[in-house]
Amino acid sequence: MKFLVNPSKFNKFADNVFLPVLILSIILFSIGLIFSFYLSPDDYQQGSTVRIMYVHVPSAWLALLTYAIMTVYSIVGLAFRIPFGFIINTAVAPIGAVFTLICIVSGSLWGKPMWGTWWVWDARLTSVAILFIIYLVIIFMNLSFENRIVREKVVAIFVLVGSINLPIVKFSVDWWNTLHQPATISKLSKPSIDPSMMIPLIVMTFAFIMVGLAIAILRIKSEIISRKSNLN
C-alpha cells in the first residue's frame, strides 16, 4: 500500500493501472449509457426525466468522495509531514470541481421539469453551491502563492476547514425541510429504488469513478514531475 503515499511507488503503480482503468471506464460508460437510455424503464411518476439521475447522482457522489479523499490526504500531509498528501490536493481539486459542476447543471435540468424551477436556495442546493465555491477557492489558492511550502500548508488547512461542509451536504435533506428529496440509497435501510434502475446507477457510478481515477493519475503524475523539476 506504499503507493498511496510514496511518489515513485505511485508512479510505478500508475503506469501499471492506467491503461486498464481507461479501458474499464470506456466499457463501463458504454454499458451504463446503453442501460440508462434504452434498457432502464421510465419512472412511474417522472417518466423519462428520471434518466438524468444516472448522471446527476454519480457526479454528486464523486464530488463528495473527491473532497473526502482530499480531507484524508490533508490530515496525513499535515500531521505526518508527507508531501504526497499535498500533491493530491493540488491534483484532484479541479476534478472534484468539475464533478460538482456536472451535479449542479444536471440537477438544474432535472429540477426545471420536475419541481418547476431551475434553482432554489434550500439547504441541499445551497450547501452544494458552497462545496463548488470551496473547490474554486482551493484551485485559486493552488495558483497564487510564491512559496510552495507555505502554500501547501495553507491549502491543506483550508481543505480541512471546508470538510465541515461534507456532513452538511449529506444530511441537509434529513435535518431541514428542503425541496430536494431525501436520500434513496442509504446503508441503514433497503433502497427505495427498483433493481432495474439501480443497475444503471451503479454501473454509471463505477464509470465515473474510473474516469475520475484516470484523470487523477495523469494529474498526479504531472504534479510529481513538476515538483521534481521545481517548476512551482
Binding site: P41, D42, D43, Y44, Q45, Q46, G47, V50, M53, M114, W115, Q181, P182, A183, T184, S192, I193, D194, S196, M197
Partner: peptide, 8 residues
C-alpha cells in the same frame, strides 16, 4: 417528489 423510484 419523493425518494422512491419505480418502473411505470
Amino acid at each position: 417528489h419523493d425518494e422512491n423510484y419505480m418502473p411505470a
